[in-house]
């Protein structure tokens, strides 16, 4: 499903985010990518959604070689990947419902489909009763759930979550991880980027550990080893 071959990302000569990393993620897998801040975890997510291009190496998602993706094809790629961003990226002037519907509107979905899908994803993340609240009227955990709901509307085969529990308390963190597990149980491949030790250890799934831009370890049923 996802293949990275000898990927290097350099922002400048002395700012190397990723050094020659290779790994593959199978369809339906739940993989955690862990490591301390600045080890290139978020760079991997950015490369997977073509927000950044690798300096060297090759990245494939399904049949797409996204290292050679044309600018015009990037929106098509992004419609097939659900992404939860570290900084949420919610539109403050739109309600939770509108933020989620917006992701469907921009791809030309029919109003009937929007009316059908948005309440469904709101139900999955448990926010059906707060659909018409603005982001500022929601707690951090609720905002994060809106972002997850928005990432789900395209029924993606791949779900990328970049530090989704970064600013949440233990209870909200657990709820978010439960939602990710639920998404994975539908057969969706989940890639979770985090530096939360407890989350990774409780998950007991595959863990790829990055250190200084390189893969330090890659274990099935792994633990946070740093």
């Amino acid at each position: 499903m996802i293949n990275l071959h000898n990927v290097t990302k350099m922002y400048s000569e002395d700012a190397v985010a990723l050094k020659n990393i290779s790994f593959a993620v199978k369809s339906g897998e739940f993989v955690s990518i862990v490591g301390q801040s600045g080890t290139g975890k978020s760079t991997i997510i950015k490369i997977l959604i073509a927000e950044e291009r690798p300096t060297k190496g090759q990245v494939e998602i399904g049949d797409w070689d996204i290292t050679r993706i044309r600018a015009g094809d990037i929106p098509m790629l992004r419609r097939q990947i659900g992404v939860v961003f570290q900084d949420l990226k919610l539109l403050p002037a739109m309600t939770a419902y509108e933020n989620i519907a917006f992701a469907l509107e921009v791809v030309g979905a029919l109003p009937r489909r929007i009316k059908e899908v948005v309440p469904q994803v709101l139900r999955i993340v448990g926010l059906e009763d707060k659909a018409h609240r603005y982001p500022l009227q929601l707690s951090g955990g609720e905002q994060q759930r809106v972002v997850i709901a928005r990432a789900l509307v395209h029924r993606p085969k791949i779900f990328l979550a970049d530090e989704p529990t970064g600013n949440l308390d233990a209870l909200n963190t657990r709820e978010i991880i439960d939602i990710l597990k639920k998404i994975n149980s539908f057969g969706t491949t989940v890639v979770l980027v985090t530096h939360n030790r407890e989350v990774v250890n409780q998950l007991r799934r595959r863990v790829i550990t990055l250190n200084g831009g390189e893969i330090m370890s890659d274990h099935e049923n792994g633990k946070y080893v740093l």
Partner: peptide
């Protein structure tokens, strides 16, 4: 600029 970035990241085409 924030909205433009979000629109792009959720899959909006340039013309949209």
């Amino acid at each position: 600029r924030g909205e433009i970035r979000i629109m792009r990241l959720v899959g909006a085409s340039s013309w949209f």
